[in-house]
Design a protein around this nucleic acid. Structure first.
Lengths: 231, 231
DNA sequence: CTGCTTTCGCTACGAGTCGTAGCGTAACTG
DNA sequence: CAGTTACGCTACGACTCGTAGCGAAAGCAG
């Protein structure tokens, strides 16, 4: 999932997505036109680059990561790197996004247990050096670059809101939470819960620099559960 | 409050307190003992540099801020800059820290009103371009540099915990909250509330990129108040 | 097979930044 | 006055950036 540069799309398994879409021109062939004419891009190079990016992030951090380092570690020419990702920012988004896919909503039988499990997973993810090096730096870059912020939300942040939705749905099925009345209100509640969990755990780990212990998780879950369950 | 470099006398760290006397350091000589021997550092240059740093942050962001830019905007030689701050990181910590001093705990007569007022102040601070450009970038750098993280907490983060403590004390005086039983538990509660408020608002504004409305603040305060007040 | 097309590795480049060193001058102290 | 320190200025080597040009490699269509 390289950053869909202007050139051709590599190994898109299903819908090639037509990278020339921004031309908005004739569009002779509708979607599905997998027109690979020349030499196809190396999928192995993609993997090597993303792996090298994560490794370099873990070793040298955000500031120490340069396109040159990544290229040489991936045993790839620097120009090959620039053909796929326009800059370090987009490269790191793709390299880090996959790390967040491992988060799952377990459904342990109670809302409290589910929340605590997700918090623990998130804390473990934030303990990885790649994540630490990349996440806040990406967010910082995103405050200045609207396109980048959109990409970050699309690839990293928003997909995790599914966890909140799933947890809510499970709790509603159990009767721990009442059913949704208003659709907009439900969405706002998902947003606020998500920002609270993600923001608080990030602040605790990455800013305050203190560990997420089971005791802390219990207290934090108390905070979240209070108004939801209605005591 | 420059970063207390090793300004001169490289091999005699036993004479700190240097230049700016408001350093809360050891102060071997009684306060006010300005026993500066040579030419004193220009306080005007300090102010010009910190102002230029904030302006450059607002204009060019974290990535666009270079020591050369700041120096030329402050009409100061680059070497003068390096004599006071070892790097961009420490410079920006000092330049941004003062922005946070304006936050105050208002004591509006109810815990809810106090929380909402502080959230609104913090949201306004996070709307400033200097703050946006600097805060997350500093946090990101802090994940790799322990000294820097300590400086950030010391200069920017921890001082704001006073707001939580003051709010708690006021609420206890009003009878909204019970008195502290355990001292360690009280400290842990202050920490968790602080991480929750700061982390959530930061995530909402800087990551999700959505505004802090009165409506959102009300909902968020509900979340915090639930378990504290005991419904 | 032969062309056509695109990617690949490699080299080289100008521009910009970094942090430091050296020098002469300015400012303040005793 | 001499002594000490900060200042402005210039210059430097090292590094990264992003791009350009080249010949070679790897697929696809005829």
């Amino acid at each position: 999932m390289p950053a869909a540069q202007p050139p051709a799309t590599p190994e898109s398994p299903e819908s090639p997505a037509r990278t020339t879409a921004e031309q908005a021109g004739p569009a002779p062939e509708p979607a599905g036109a997998a027109r690979a004419k020349g030499r196809p891009r190396s999928a192995a190079a993609d993997r090597a680059i993303l792996d090298a990016t994560r490794e370099t992030l873990a070793e040298l951090g955000w500031g120490g990561l340069t396109m040159g380092h990544v290229a040489s570690r991936a045993k790839v020419a620097k120009t090959t790197l620039y053909r796929r990702w326009p800059s370090k920012n987009e490269l790191v988004v793709d390299a880090v996004a996959s790390l967040f896919d491992d988060l799952v909503m377990p459904d342990l039988g109670s809302l409290r247990a589910d929340i605590e499990a997700v918090v623990a997973q998130f804390a473990a993810l934030l303990d990885r050096p790649e994540t630490q090096a990349a996440l806040l730096a990406l967010f910082a870059e995103g405050t200045r670059d609207r396109q980048l912020r959109y990409r970050i939300r699309e690839a990293i942040v928003d997909p995790q809101k599914r966890l909140v939705r799933q947890g809510r749905a499970a709790a509603q099925a159990r009767g721990e939470l009442g059913p949704d009345t208003d659709d907009a209100a439900a969405r706002a509640e998902v947003d606020i819960i998500f920002d609270t969990i993600a923001g608080t755990v990030e602040h605790r780990v990455l800013v305050s620099g203190e560990p997420i212990t089971p005791e802390w998780t219990r207290r934090f879950t108390d905070l979240l559960l209070g108004p939801l369950i209605g005591c």
